[in-house]
């Protein structure tokens, strides 16, 4: 049986680890370490290698969920983790300075993988003011010739994480 994996990436602090914890059947394996840079104002710990969770299908086949580190200096881990992956979920923290640029950066960095598979965008922390409207994310995707679902999600909610995976699975089958 081949390994099936779904990769969750996105900006530091967007909730990749939380998303995996929300849906994984087993306590997620984490590689958190203390943050020593400006991110420490937002969170005390950050993922430096990967997060790992799993789902069991009806025939005991496993789906592995991998969370990448968010920071660009860990780009090498992104490349390692996407190998053989089924598809990508990109989480964008809308409280950051330029969430549209963040989304574009991840789309660009994972462009080869996305071209072969598919991606779903999850916007988090949308309840804050002054975040770009949803349409701007679609426009930004459109400018890159892409059409992926963009959802407003709360990654603490299992249902929201399931929706992103469900949409990704549909994209892989039909788009």
């Amino acid at each position: 049986m081949s390994e099936i994996k779904i990769i969750i990436t996105g900006t530091p602090g967007a909730g990749k680890t939380t998303a995996i914890a929300a849906i994984s059947e087993t306590p997620p394996v984490r590689t958190d370490t203390a943050t020593t840079d400006e991110l420490s104002e937002v969170k005390e710990q950050t993922t430096v290698a990967m997060d790992f969770g799993e789902l069991t299908l009806e025939d005991d086949q496993k789906v592995f969920l991998y969370g990448t580190p968010g920071q660009r200096r860990f780009e090498f881990m992104w490349k390692i983790l996407v190998q053989g992956g089924l598809g990508l979920i990109i989480l964008v923290d809308c409280t950051r300075e330029d969430p549209l640029a963040d989304m574009k950066m991840y789309l660009e960095n994972f462009s080869d993988f996305i071209a072969e598979t598919g991606a779903v965008i999850g916007l988090v922390k949308r309840d804050m003011t002054d975040t770009p409207p949803l349409d701007e994310f679609y426009q930004a995707l459109n400018q890159q010739g892409l059409m992926f679902p963009v959802f407003e999600v709360d990654v603490r909610e299992q249902g929201d994480v399931a929706l992103m995976i469900d949409a990704l699975v549909s994209l892989l089958e039909y788009s």
């Binding site: 394996v29 984490r30 590689t31 958190d32 370490t33 430096v48 290698a49 990967m50 580190p69 920071q71 200096r73 860990f74 090498f76 881990m77």
Partner: peptide, 21 residues
């Protein structure tokens, strides 16, 4: 140096996590 620094943090974190598992 900067690339090695990021990689070594991943490697060490993985080593420590594998040990626990």
């Amino acid at each position: 140096a900067s690339k090695l620094a990021a990689m070594m943090s991943s490697v060490l974190a993985l080593g420590e996590t594998v040990a626990i598992e």
